[in-house]
Simulated scan of single mutants.
Amino acid sequence: MEEFSSELRGRVEDFSGKLSKLDRQVIEALLVDPLGSSYETASEVAERAGVHQTTVIRFARKLGYDGFLEMRESLRKGHVQKASSASRVFSRIRTAGELSSIEAFLHSEIEALHQLPNHVRAADLESAATMLAKADRIMIFARGQAQVLGKFLALRLERLGFDAGAIDHIDLDTPNRIAGLKEGDVVISFALRRVPAQLPLLLSFCRRRRVRTLMISDMIGPSIRPSADILLAAPRGTETQSQTLSVPMAIANLLLLDLVQAVPQQARDALEGLDDGRVELEKLSRGALRKD
């Protein structure tokens, strides 16, 4: 099922001009809730984005629309009328009374995950897995709350037999962590809510070195320049909900599943080798305990 923000998102990704910080705020406001945005006025979108109404109108024209109304119509055209199963379930809960904290949390998580297939295409996941399968080395760049995701992904890739590692900064005094990047390597970056300060530098460096890039992001992703070769981006909740990490974690897990299918023998050999190593360590550990 195609997302109803796909036409707008495509224009953002194809836009070759400069996108300002205010433009990015408008993009996030539109793409995080495309259905709601498709029924709002320019002033209402501007209020949610924290910008002036004229900024929203200028942004629409910058992307090639005649104005805000045409941009809003592009959001509305693709709207799928079918309500999600999660919405139906929790509408029943609401009729019974106020949601408990557990129910409210699960509601927001399910709603965010339910939107994932509308934003991340299976074909893009497959392309990303194919790119990683051919990589000589994989480096993951993640900062802030995304660091745990970067470390998780690096560990999983290592277990599948890949040369992978995670970094959270670029030290210009000792650039050895990225200086060795070359054609044939792949850099995976995470960008959640905000653009990490050093990410544009890293993407520019990769482009100069002909290093392929993959970005896992939320709705800030389409506005980031330079753009990654492959972008896997989906909203992590509406503005009234907490921004969940379950969505980028799900993207990472889906990517790993596709990667196993791309290199089944390598994955099998690596995992079997890992199991053999664990058994050997357990035997050595038991032997050491007996001696003690």
Rank of each mutant, 00 (worst) to 15 (best):
F90C: 03
L99Q: 04
S74G: 02
A129S: 15
G273F: 04
Q261C: 14
N176V: 10
I220R: 01
Q53C: 02
L259M: 10
G64S: 06
V80N: 05
K291T: 10
A112C: 12
D171E: 13
H114D: 14
R207Q: 11
G10F: 03
E239A: 06
R159H: 13
A128L: 06
R209K: 15
I57T: 03
E98N: 04
L116P: 00
N176T: 10
S100F: 03
S189I: 10
E2F: 06
V51G: 08
L19P: 00
V148C: 12
R94P: 03
L22Q: 07
T41K: 02
F68P: 08
F4D: 05
G161S: 03
A228W: 06
T55I: 06
L19R: 02
F68Y: 14
R236Q: 11
T174E: 12
P222V: 07
L281H: 03
L281A: 10
Q53N: 10
E28T: 07
L8C: 02
F90H: 01
T174P: 00
L245R: 03
R207K: 14
G180V: 07
A128Q: 04
I224L: 13
G17M: 10
A191T: 05
P200E: 01
I224W: 05
A123P: 05
D171A: 10
A83V: 11
T130F: 08
H52D: 15
E98K: 02
E183Y: 00
L22T: 12
I102W: 04
G97W: 06
E126I: 07
M1L: 08
A166H: 12
M131V: 13
E98I: 00
V186A: 11
F190R: 00
L256H: 03
A29C: 06
M249V: 07
I178A: 08
E103A: 15
M71A: 09
L153E: 14
D14C: 04
Q266H: 07
S101N: 07
S127K: 14
M1K: 04
L153I: 04
S84G: 11
E70A: 13
E103K: 00
G165K: 13
L8Q: 00
Q266P: 05
Y39I: 04
A191F: 03
P117D: 04
E7I: 11
E28D: 08
Q266V: 12
I57V: 14
R88I: 15
A233M: 10
E7F: 09
N253W: 01
G165M: 09
I178K: 01
K151H: 13
D124A: 15
F4E: 08
D218V: 05
E47A: 13
Q147R: 13
E3T: 07
S217C: 09
Q266K: 15
S84D: 12
L31V: 01
E158D: 05
Q81E: 08
V186Q: 06
L254W: 08
S217E: 00
V195K: 04
S74W: 01
D168E: 09
R11V: 07
A228F: 12
M219D: 03
A288P: 04
D14S: 13
P175I: 01
D168P: 00
D171M: 00
R278G: 11
L35P: 02
L201G: 07
G165W: 06
K283H: 06
I188S: 07
D173S: 09
P248W: 03
L281P: 00
S16P: 04
S37F: 07
Q147G: 08
S285F: 05
L19C: 09
G237Q: 05
F205L: 12
F205M: 10
G144A: 09
K151C: 12
D124L: 13
V56M: 02
